[in-house]
Design a protein around this nucleic acid. Structure first.
Lengths: 203, 203
DNA sequence: CGCATATTCTAAACCGGATTTGGCAGTCCG
DNA sequence: CGGACTGCCAAATCCGGTTTAGAATATGCG
């Protein structure tokens, strides 16, 4: 399910570019930012380190392309899933679906999303800076979800939605730092996250 | 308040080592992992890049030393604060104090803690791996806090404490990714985190 | 088809930054 | 004072990202 798989009627270089992107996503997801050599990516893509420069300005630009595809992929997956819910679904249901989709997509389904999760924090500050508008857009979508829930009276009125949104995404994003397949399923984790977020931990 | 400031009756090299550590913490906290040159640290410490190798095996070992001091500093600050609470304080009070202290210390008080927060995610995987026992020990302390709260009946019995602990630390750690001084105070943020964690967001 | 040109790729050179090396200057005893 | 150790510097080396020169391949057109 390579994000970059439509090899048809395109310039040759386009196909190669996509091959390199796929390879980069896989290698970055597996080895992280610092441990990944351009030569590793080149090998995985069946070419040479120097050749990458015909398709990308620099290692940084390559990383940024991978990150961008990762964020937009998760964003679309979440939005699609939420919009596919039966109309009239509660906002709690919508938020739970969003949490679960984000987790599932980032943890298991897409090398770009996995690479994005793993790399974003590892990457030099200036790269993060240039990605920030995408994250903001995604954050904006969550803000709307939360606002909808509040307007509908499903969450308290006294909370700062910005802090709340960052708190939720923080808990979700942190999951990738410790999640290992087996033991707890993604659905279980998502369910507990949603429960405690809504109902709190107090007895 | 340099962590490394007891220059007395120590070998000369000991003093230099501490000077380098302090310099490294400040530079790493300011510039992040990838943007920091050994020569930057050397300059800040009043020596030369090559000389660092007399005191540390490698750049990695230097980073690890900084990270270690960062974690242990936060750990001690949190424990000290919690233990200083009046006996009989509620577990909710204790957890709130822990959250606030962690945030305050990591965000503003100590270059080692700041460097640790900023660097931990940026650092190559094998370094993170070697730090994991410290994080586990700190996590263990939080687990005990949570267990105490549960035993005292202050939090629900149906929650998986591991997930809960990671959720809380996730939300707290994520804060450093977006916190900017001004606007909201650390106390305010800590307060809302504690409130929503305990009481949830449901109306 | 067959050439002219543009596109794509390779191999080797280059460069900055981490690491290693060799040796020099103190210092600490006897 | 002489020998051995400690702490440090300057230069050499190594590694991986980047640039370059040009070879190989594709594309467009008569």
């Amino acid at each position: 399910m390579a994000r970059a798989a439509a090899r048809q009627g395109m310039r040759k270089s386009e196909a190669t570019r996509l091959r390199i992107l796929d390879a980069a996503a896989r290698v970055f997801a597996r080895r992280g930012y610092a441990d990944t050599r351009l030569s590793d990516i080149a090998e995985e893509a069946g070419t040479f380190a120097g050749s990458i420069y015909y398709h990308f300005e620099s290692r940084e630009e390559l990383v940024e392309a991978v990150l961008t595809l990762g964020v937009t992929g998760v964003f679309e997956a979440v939005r699609t899933r939420v919009e596919a819910l039966p109309p009239g679904s509660s906002h709690r249901t919508r938020l739970t679906a969003a949490i679960e989709t984000h987790l599932a997509f980032a943890l298991t389904q897409d090398p770009f999303a996995t690479a994005n999760q793993r790399l974003f924090a590892q990457v030099p500050a200036d790269i993060r800076q240039r990605q920030i508008h995408l994250h903001r857009a995604y954050g904006e979508y969550w803000r709307k979800l939360l606002e909808g829930a509040r307007r509908a009276g499903e969450i308290r009125r006294d909370l700062d939605l910005s802090v709340l949104r960052l708190q939720i995404l923080g808990a979700v994003n942190w999951t990738v730092e410790w999640y290992k397949p087996g033991k707890r399923s993604i659905e279980q984790i998502a369910a507990q996250l949603a429960t405690t977020i809504f109902d709190g931990i107090a007895a």
